[in-house]
Design a binder for these strands. Structure first.
Lengths: 195, 195, 195, 195
DNA sequence: CATGAATGAGAATTCATTCAT
DNA sequence: CATGAATGAATTCTCATTCAT
């Protein structure tokens, strides 16, 4: 029974909860420790300092999101279907875990994000990025630089999510919106599907 | 000699520069004052506190962006052309003023932004939002809730911009990317233009 | 028409009002200036700095109190009657001008009071102190050092006043209380009056 | 080794020393910390802010004074004797601890003291107030409202003390002065003692 | 003379991090 | 290993005072 991993998880969850709700700077280490039911000093056994705690939290969340996206994957399905499915998975996951987007969006737009973390993330491709790489190889996507496609895709998805969380959208419209994002990525007059 | 407006502007520009580069919390009032070549105390003659300085800066930047977008507007042109033109204007402006997006993105994802401010901004129509409202009235857009369309549009544009600023795109591809964003908004198999 | 003296008075009254209500430290020069309808800089034409303003205010108030005490004085009356009359005058005056005690009590117990001011005050005997000096010369008072008698007298009067201002006493009981103070000063079994 | 109580006490004593000597506002937290040989931050582990430190100090001093007054109390003695004894105790204590009156008088006349604190203190009976309540019940005192008697008594005692501390009185005269205060409280022509 | 914008020294308070227990 | 009391650097903000207009 890995006692430590429990503490580490408690810690990350406490940090997630507080930072998502109040922002980085309104979430002191002492409060995080309290929320996690450990001593302040103990945090420093798991993370060298606050920055590393936050970076660690980010990587953890990316991992959780990747898992959520990949659920019930069917590698044999058409790419578009896989894309839609993945995005549905992601959106559903984040709707159930709103703290995670709140944190992620703060983090990704803050100067906390170190170049190391950035590099590490780009290596660790996310399942959706993998899908789009495949799609591009198969000439399904518009002839734009891949990073541009990825960035526009992420941005649009985040926007959709934000709208949803502010109750500006209904679940029913979600699938249509996902289709719209796909339309952005694929040439007109095709289904974005081979043949 | 408009002494005051110089000081206030110096202040906003100093704040913009430092916050964009280092984040809210690494930009102490003392440093902002120094950068603006004024005394610390002077800041408080123009803004009640740091929060108001930051909110004031945000509103100022929104204004500048709105002006940039609206440059050389041709109300008689087809909506799509106006949309493309506006987005080109915005992107060019932000490419020349990268600190403004860096600040804006930090701000909009931080807990600095109050719900009031958010609401107020949504009311204060931006030129592009106006265009899209018109387009929706003319049934040019997909049948999605307007806030969803706007959010996806903003997200995608921001993404495009980020990619560009990280040198992942060339100016040449910019127009194609803008077309792609338009594709997201309008139904397939139409040009998104009446008849 | 001495324009200055109006300003100086406005200034002192503004300072009195604000300091009595909020204390020395919650009464900034800028606010005092505003209350007096003059510019901040102008204060420094009348007083070298805040300390001198406060000391000047104190001396002014002492003067006003002395005037109030001496009203309708009858030098021919028995000393006790004069004492009672004086104290009644003072108490009535302060009841009508509560800001003045509030200020005075703060001031006299604060380290604002400079040794110079103290000295100056001891010279400028107040009418009641004069009366008590006379009374002591005529052997009407208890054989205690004069400063002790004065201090006990002042303390008791202040106490009475405080009680009154906190609505713990009625005007009717005021005269009895004044008698009690007199009893403190004179030997028992005398009326404290010659013959 | 009661580490905490030492720190808290050091803190209170440092605050007492500095505030008594220089006033509230000339006693910055940093200086108090230095005087107490602790870090500035440490103050805030014991008191939420400067106000609470000062209020805490006041309550502590009231406690010390109450203890001093009650020393060698003889409940069986006549009330007047108990009164004299108590006042002697108090005066002696304060002569040995002049900082405590200096602080107390500043505090009680400053806007630091909230109405709540005032009320709370009036409830918390002090030994002398208890004595006077008893004396009033036994009809030993003049027929004045109790708060008036208390206020005059406190004022006179404070005055006596001030005179003494300014070397205007000798210890020999102290007892006579205490008698004088008693005379203020009891009807003439009685010893203020039953029978 | 009067003004009030500008200033910066100084004050209170917070919080990441350390280290003795 | 875990803890949390202690710390002081760093931050925001206030306000007496000056001085150019």
């Amino acid at each position: 029974m890995p006692v430590q991993s429990t503490k580490r998880d408690d810690l990350l969850n406490a940090a997630l909860k507080l930072i998502a709700g109040q922002g980085f700077h309104a979430a002191p280490m002492s409060q995080i420790a309290e929320e996690a039911n450990i001593g302040v000093g103990t945090i420093y056994r798991y993370f060298k300092n606050k920055d590393e705690l936050i970076n660690g939290l980010y990587l953890e969340i990316r991992k959780r999101m990747a898992e959520a996206i990949g659920k019930d994957r069917d590698d044999a399905a058409p790419l578009k279907a896989q894309f839609v499915k993945s995005l549905q998975n992601l959106i559903r996951y984040l709707i159930d875990n709103p703290a995670e987007i709140q944190f992620t969006q703060q983090y990704e737009n803050s100067p906390f994000i170190t170049d190391e973390t950035k590099a590490e993330i780009e290596k660790t491709a996310s399942p959706i990025s993998d899908l789009l790489i495949l799609a591009q190889k198969e000439k399904l996507l518009k002839p734009l630089p891949f990073p541009v496609l990825m960035a526009m895709f992420s941005g649009a998805s985040n926007g959709l999510l934000k709208a949803y969380l502010q109750k500006k959208s209904s679940p029913a419209k979600m699938d249509e919106a996902i289709e719209a994002i796909w339309d952005m990525l694929v040439p007109k007059n095709t289904e974005g599907v081979k043949q």
